[in-house]
């Protein structure tokens, strides 16, 4: 068990967001940016990092203020805190790379309404100490970025024949244009989910049967 800074924080605090409760593949949260900005790997990565930052910052602040925020207005408070950090990210990306800002468009500002962030604030940060909330948010953010990259890589390779902007297949490759179009986003995510479901069922099957039948 690595990463044991505190007896309440375990490796699981971090890793549950990465795999078992992956926000995209397991819980289907925050779908809009997942499908909208993953037409290339670099956009997917930028979106993942921006979302992770908001997740971390809002998680820490909400966790620090969890005793001060009255129960009745907590959702509104969370949203205002999240919106503040999103505004910071929005202006930072605009300052760092205008190309990226134009490619991501309104979806940076739409991080505010990413249900994953509000969901983590409500379910985790408001109930745990700042350090634990931080570790968990880091895991969730990493899981989210991983999922975005899964989609972004597949869609860029198939849809443009490139990866992070480098040509992979040479000029004779005919790109599957549908993959970078909206329809491709739905189909690729559906295919990933099918794959994971298949793995899960196979694992469950092999666990339930003590002796695997050979056909």
């Amino acid at each position: 068990m690595a990463r044991k800074q505190n007896n309440t924080i375990t490796w699981d605090t971090f890793s549950e967001g990465l795999w078992r409760e992956n926000p995209v593949f397991a819980m289907l949260l925050g779908m809009c940016p997942v499908l909208a900005v993953t037409n290339s790997a670099i956009n997917a990565l930028a979106m993942g990092v921006a979302t992770t930052f908001v997740l971390l910052a809002s998680g820490i602040l909400i966790s620090l203020l969890r005793r001060q925020i009255p129960k009745q207005v907590r959702i509104a408070t969370y949203i205002v805190i999240i919106a503040t950090f999103v505004t910071i990210v929005d202006y930072s990306i605009q300052a760092i790379s205008l190309d990226l800002y134009n490619a991501l468009g309104a979806f940076i500002q739409l991080i505010v309404v990413n249900c994953m962030i509000l969901g983590r604030a409500e379910a985790y940060a408001s109930k745990n100490r700042p350090l634990k909330a931080f570790v968990n948010a880091l895991g969730m953010g990493a899981g989210f970025t991983f999922a975005l990259l899964c989609l972004g890589v597949v869609r860029e390779v198939l849809g443009a024949g490139k990866l992070f902007g480098f040509d992979l297949f040479g000029p004779q490759f005919e790109p599957w244009v549908v993959m970078v179009l909206p329809a491709g986003g739905f189909i690729v995510l559906g295919a990933w989910l099918l794959l994971f479901e298949w793995f899960k069922q196979r694992k469950a099957l092999s666990e339930s049967e003590a002796v695997v039948e050979a056909r």
């Binding site: 179009l181 189909i187 989910l193 479901e197 069922q201």
Partner: peptide, 22 residues
């Protein structure tokens, strides 16, 4: 088939709808 239970098949349907809206 049992693999397609849940959200995966809804997403595939969404993809087809999106294609037709193109």
């Amino acid at each position: 088939p049992s693999v397609t239970q849940g959200a995966a098949v809804s997403l595939m349907l969404g993809g087809l709808l999106s294609l037709s809206f193109m």
